[in-house]
């Protein structure tokens, strides 16, 4: 999933788990808090099969705070499930995710 990084290094990559629901958020929060110092963070959401509002709220908040600190946040990939959920919750823009392809 995550990786260690030094203060001046480049992009941190964070992989989201397949079951990215509330029970996984405490660990994810710690990881994201660590990533706030990195100049750039890349999030890999390709593995996400299950996701909930708690996860999307956390990601939204992270992105907002990282951007406000001048850090770049980008998606390496995002599963359909993740995009669809963001779309349903009206968070596609805030997360900068591609809009879900209507099934």
């Amino acid at each position: 999933m995550g990786s260690k990084r030094g203060r001046n290094e480049k992009a941190v990559e964070i992989g989201l788990p397949a079951d990215c629901r509330m029970a996984a958020q405490t660990a994810l929060l710690a990881e994201l808090l660590g990533a706030l110092d990195a100049p750039a963070t890349q999030i890999d959401g390709s593995a996400v099969e299950r996701v909930d509002t708690a996860a999307l709220q956390l990601l939204t908040l992270f992105r907002r705070e990282a951007l406000s600190r001048g850090c770049a946040v980008s998606w390496r990939d995002a599963s359909g499930t993740l995009c669809e959920a963001a779309d349903t919750l009206g968070l596609v823009k805030a997360l900068d995710l591609p809009a879900a392809v209507p099934a």
């Binding site: 509330m22 958020q25 405490t26 994201l32 708690a54 709220q57 992270f62």
Partner: peptide, 13 residues
Amino acid sequence: LPSLDKLDPSECH
């Protein structure tokens, strides 16, 4: 939304 370090991920804001 609160700041990230104040967030309880199980709460909804």
